[in-house]
């Protein structure tokens, strides 16, 4: 009896420690899981404004993940999901410009560079700077954009507007329609993320 009680006493502090560590690690695992926020219905639109014609397209099926711990932010965009007002524009976009049969997807892999300034646990609007690689039409280019991250009730909304040049992505505009399509394309990102379960 004595002997066994003794050994129990001896083990007790060790046990406590292990439980604490266990608890901590469990917390950190769940924290790790909660740091991921995802959307499958993000919105990305772009427009080209030339003196002759205004061209706009929306894609409401953008998927994206933010890792709030590392600041990583990735997007996957199917080009055929961009919808235009005019069917012919959509056909030409897919056939002649982005060649979406050859390059069906555009991706962005980036990082929030001012991560420390954003408190994902506190509701508010935070100005954010995101930098990374945008891949489109088989070409990868560094882009950077200023935007806003809004934290509200455990969800994150991201908004950003930036501009790319078509020639940076090897997309050429035939001279015949050169006055209708602008070289500079404005891209607007508007995504609402839910915590990934």
């Amino acid at each position: 009896m004595d002997h066994s009680r003794n050994s129990k006493q001896l083990k007790q502090p060790n046990m406590k420690k292990s439980i604490v560590i266990l608890l901590l690690s469990v917390i950190s695992i769940t924290a790790g899981a909660q740091s991921l926020y995802m959307t499958k219905a993000g919105k990305v639109s772009f427009n080209s404004r030339s003196s002759v014609e205004k061209i706009e397209a929306d894609n409401n099926e953008v998927s994206s993940v933010i890792n709030t711990q590392t600041g990583d932010m990735v997007f996957a965009i199917l080009l055929k999901s961009f919808h235009f007002d005019r069917a012919l524009m959509e056909e030409h976009f897919n056939e002649n410009y982005v060649e979406s049969d050859k390059f069906p997807k555009s991706t962005f892999k980036g990082k929030i560079s001012n991560l420390s300034a954003i408190n994902f646990t506190k509701d508010g609007n935070y100005p954010a700077v995101v930098e990374g690689d945008l891949t489109m039409h088989g070409v990868t280019k560094k882009v950077s954009s200023n935007g806003t991250l809004t934290v509200k009730a455990g969800k994150i909304a991201a908004y950003a507007k930036f501009s790319v040049k078509l020639k940076d992505f090897d997309i050429s505009i035939p001279s015949l329609v050169a006055d209708k399509i602008s070289q500079d394309i404005d891209i607007i990102v508007d995504c609402k993320y839910d915590p990934k379960s």
């Binding site: 690690s25 950190s28 695992i29 790790g32 995802m38 998927s63 711990q69 590392t70 990583d72």
Partner: peptide, 18 residues
Amino acid sequence: LSFALPRIYAQDDLMKML
């Protein structure tokens, strides 16, 4: 494991997830 876990989600893993 607890330290390694956050590091699992690098950019490429996030892309794979999508």
